[in-house]
Deep mutational scan, measured.
Amino acid sequence: MTGIVKWFNADKGFGFITPDDGSKDVFVHFSAIQNDGYKSLDEGQKVSFTIESGAKGPAAGNVTSL
């Protein structure tokens, strides 16, 4: 699925993605970002991701920028 990064705190390594389908915002951890180098996201960035079952509920996985 796709969405827009609502916010991401690079110091803490997590944030939230707002899915394009209008569903509830999804937690994203830096370890789910699939790019080389520094793993961070920018507010407003368009991303593709999967929904994984995290310890505290749904979380984004396999996050790639579009």
Rank of each mutant, 00 (worst) to 15 (best):
F27E: 02
M1P: 05
G57M: 06
P19V: 05
F8S: 01
S48A: 13
A10M: 10
F16D: 00
S53R: 09
S48K: 12
N9Y: 06
A60G: 04
F14K: 02
V26K: 03
A60R: 02
P58C: 09
G57L: 06
G44F: 05
N62W: 11
F49C: 01
L66F: 08
A59G: 06
T18N: 05
Q34H: 10
G57W: 08
L66T: 10
D21V: 07
T18R: 13
F14Q: 03
G54P: 04
S40W: 14
D25T: 05
I4Q: 08
A10K: 15
T2D: 04
T64M: 12
I33N: 03
T18W: 07
K6T: 05
S23D: 07
F49V: 01
N62F: 11
K46D: 04
T2G: 05
D36Y: 11
G44M: 05
D25S: 06
D25M: 06
E43I: 14
L41E: 01
F14C: 05
T18K: 13
G15R: 00
A32E: 07
G57S: 08
K46C: 13
Q45F: 05
K6C: 11
G3K: 00
D21L: 06
P19I: 05
K12E: 06
S40V: 13
S48H: 13
E52L: 13
D25A: 07
F49T: 01
S48V: 11
F16G: 02
G13I: 01
D20S: 10
G3E: 00
I4M: 09
A60V: 04
S48R: 13
F14G: 01
V5G: 00
I51D: 02
I33M: 05
Q34E: 10
S65Y: 13
G54E: 10
E43F: 12
F27L: 04
T2C: 08
L41C: 03
Q45G: 07
G3M: 00
F16W: 10
W7Q: 03
D11A: 14
F27P: 03
G61C: 14
P19H: 03
A55K: 13
F49A: 01
N62H: 10
F16H: 03
T50F: 10
T50K: 07
T2E: 06
A32W: 04
Q34A: 13
E52D: 10
I33R: 02
F30L: 08
T64G: 05
V63D: 02
T2Q: 08
D42S: 15
Q45Y: 05
G44Q: 04
N9S: 11
I33Y: 04
I17Y: 00
G54R: 10
D11G: 12
G57T: 05
F8T: 02
G22M: 07
Q45C: 07
D25L: 06
F27W: 07
K46H: 13
K12W: 13
F8R: 01
A10W: 11
G13K: 04
K46Q: 09
A55R: 13
L41M: 05
G37P: 09
G22F: 06
N9Q: 06
T18E: 08
S53I: 15
P19E: 02
K24M: 11
A10P: 13
A59T: 15
G57F: 07
G22K: 07
F49Q: 00
F49I: 02
D11N: 12
E43K: 15
S31W: 07
V63T: 02
S23N: 08
F14H: 05
T50E: 09
S53A: 14
K24C: 12
V5L: 04
V47N: 00
G44W: 05
